[in-house]
Design a protein around this nucleic acid. Structure first.
Lengths: 238, 238
DNA sequence: CCAAAAGTGTTAGGAGTACACCCATGT
DNA sequence: ACATGGGTGTACTCCTAACACTTTTGG
């Protein structure tokens, strides 16, 4: 055991961050919401799957800690992260009093090379729909639910979706993506009407030909227009 | 200085809770939103006004810590509290790395005997509208803004208002209260219609005669009816 | 009779939701 | 020709917000 070189007048709970990172993967007609988990290499829960996360360092901002842990344990960098809540229920960690700040994020699956390091024996994306087959360590199943609810609520307020799509995308792609995250279907006509009215999604010349059907108009997300829009209103089509 | 008897392998940030407790006070025609502040008795910021709060104890749940600190420093017990967010910006506390979990609450002003103890030299309600005259310690001004925004957003989703009113109250009292918290006026007719439709506010026999004008119908909050309602919808008149 | 708050309906606009058919392409 | 997803418009409902006059009391 290492020397216990840090001492304080009063006991301090340990402070961690846990990151619930989602992505959407699969064929366009069968997108699945996935979450990034690591296989623990240390006790407790050695061998179990868990959310990436770890201890907050001295003088480290919480969001910085979240990004750092994510990078260290999974190889994923540059994720958009948002704070969900903080959980410190006594007994949630067998090692003692551990308070964790939960972050949620959403990234494109293929742009990140997964790399398990340190206390992660493996890193993998898991289908959220099949998580009941995977018992998670600690109270991470609950944290995941909290994070997913948060993400679904924020989806219509923050332009995160567009980071998961190529620069030019079809409206069907955007809609299918939103449906995968929300876990429900959306009406295509209402969706497209809304997109028209928002006008921070601009049709660009060119179509995507794919499969035995009519080619689809390509669109592009215009950040400047979104900024204008965000200052006024806040109703996205999802 | 006390013996430093608690030691760990790695440094740990200190973890605190801060409580932003609001009330509404004043004459019915001039209700003012107020926040509970303590005058610090210790450095740093000795003599400055600050949010009540303090360190989370070993194996203490966060919400329990918030309630305990509130009681210890101000004498207020039994407040409805809700977690707002967690802030750990480096440099926010000159003593070092201090991460704080912010709670917000709302209580009736007169039902609590204020009592300053421990590291509070004084406890007082301050008009939120006049806080610019009171420089707050640490980043508490910012925490207060976050808490107020949170409260305003939740007002229509949680039946907190009714805790600030006598068991039987008039609709004007309820509306004036909501207006004081929200910081804007509401349309009286729309407000009353909404109340009718919700039917967890039930008119009870009796009126309040007060001043030189028509007496007002008394209403009562019916928790059971609210439970039914909450399961279905979520649109309160404020 | 005057001041002061209580009480009361209607309308217009916007947002959400439901719904069915033709179009352009590849095979 | 047919299978496949792309693309389009209308009607209904519900919620919100705006708006002005009469009623009942105390002084």
């Amino acid at each position: 055991m290492a020397k216990r070189k840090w001492s304080y007048d009063y006991p301090r709970p340990a402070l961690t961050v846990d990151i619930v990172l989602f992505t959407v993967a699969g064929a366009l007609n069968d997108l699945r919401l996935q979450v990034l988990l690591i296989q623990r290499n240390e006790s407790p829960f050695r061998g179990a799957w868990a959310l990436p996360g770890g201890f907050v360092r001295q003088d480290e901002d919480l969001s910085v800690a979240a990004r750092r842990e994510l990078l260290e344990e999974t190889g994923v960098s540059e994720a958009y992260l948002e704070q969900v809540t903080t959980v410190g229920t006594p007994g949630r960690d067998p090692r003692g009093h551990v308070v964790t700040v939960v972050y949620v994020g959403l990234v494109p699956a293929d742009r990140h090379q997964l790399r398990a390091t340190g206390d992660a024996a493996a890193v993998r994306w898991f289908d959220v729909a099949r998580l009941h087959e995977v018992p998670l360590a600690f109270d991470h199943a609950r944290l995941l639910v909290l994070a997913l609810e948060h993400l679904r609520g924020r989806l219509g307020e923050v332009p995160v979706c567009f980071q998961l799509l190529p620069e030019e995308f079809t409206l069907s792609e955007l809609q299918t993506l939103a449906e995968a995250i929300l876990g429900r279907t959306l009406d295509r006509r209402n969706f497209r009407r809304k997109v028209d009215e928002l006008h921070f999604l601009r049709p660009v010349p060119g179509t995507r030909r794919q499969g035995a059907h009519r080619p689809a108009q390509l669109y592009r997300f215009v950040p400047e227009k979104f900024a204008e829009y965000a200052a006024r209103s806040r109703t996205l089509p999802f």
